[in-house]
């Protein structure tokens, strides 16, 4: 279970998160939607403990993540993975080495096992052909998939996805959506997915939350969101230019 309690965060005087508050049940797929630049990535970084809030608390299974000692953070992250928006692959390692990196560095398995697991994930994300290329030589979508593969090798209980399907073709997007759902069904993985893509949000979400101006304006099941009366959410999901959301 993941709980964010009244998270406030400013960068250089600009308030980005203004009392963000939500609770995610174990095994749930929770989707965060919102405009570009509203702080979706910042929210995910709070959950991962990569950014500390100005005030508020992040609880992972009841343990405080923000401000925790390195050892505590390390322990919480053992079963947590994040798929970064840009992939964040180590640029001087091949795709294969990137994917096996967490296993090799933490000496979790024997070399043969690591080889086997890596190949399995390469296969799963259709990266076989790119396995020996460098991150700079593959497409944005491939980077994202490689980043996901690198998360999957550690068998996490919690996966944070930062726009996993943006930059992917429709077929591949659907494949990733399926994967997210299968992780939930087969391994009871808790997923937090940041996305702009309403189709995939409806498809995978147990609950959807909309972030606007640093606050969660509505949080509910896909049906509740689809039939929302909230003008902000309504404008966002239908993609209207006119409405309460100002288009700069």
């Amino acid at each position: 279970m993941i709980e964010l309690i009244a998270i406030h965060k400013s960068f250089n005087g600009a308030k980005i998160l203004n009392g963000v508050h939500f609770k995610i049940r174990k095994g749930e797929t929770f989707v965060i939607i919102g405009q570009s630049g509203t702080g979706k990535t910042v929210t995910l970084r709070h959950i991962a403990g990569l950014t500390d809030p100005d005030s508020g608390e992040v609880l992972i299974e009841g343990v405080r993540m923000n401000g925790a000692r390195n050892r505590v953070k390390e322990k919480l992250r053992k079963k947590m993975g994040i798929v970064f928006q840009s992939g964040a692959l180590i640029n001087w390692m091949s795709v294969r080495d990137n994917i096996s990196l967490p296993l090799r560095e933490n000496k979790l398995f024997s070399p043969d096992e690591i080889e086997r697991i890596t190949n399995e994930k390469l296969e799963l994300l259709q990266l076989k052909d790119a396995a020996d290329k460098m991150p700079a030589d593959i497409s944005g979508g491939m980077k994202k998939r490689a980043s996901l593969a690198r998360v999957l090798v550690i068998n996490p209980d919690i996966i944070l996805y930062d726009e996993p399907t943006s930059g992917l073709d429709p077929v591949m997007s659907e494949h990733i959506n399926e994967l997210i759902r299968r992780m939930q069904k087969d391994f009871d993985v808790t997923s937090i997915v940041v996305t702009h893509d309403m189709q995939s949000a409806y498809h995978i979400a147990d609950r959807i939350a909309m972030l606007y101006r640093g606050e969660i304006v509505q949080c509910g099941t896909p049906d509740e969101i689809r039939n929302t009366e909230n003008p902000i959410v309504k404008q966002f999901i239908t993609g209207q230019v006119t409405g309460p959301i100002e288009v700069a």
Binding site: L50, R77, F84, N91
Partner: peptide, 22 residues
């Protein structure tokens, strides 16, 4: 610095790999 700003250092930390050691 490039690794830092492209979130690679964060990725290392998430994998419990110490950037200092690595």
């Amino acid at each position: 610095g490039t690794m830092k700003v492209s979130e690679e250092i964060d990725a290392l930390e998430m994998m419990s790999i110490s950037p200092v050691k690595f």
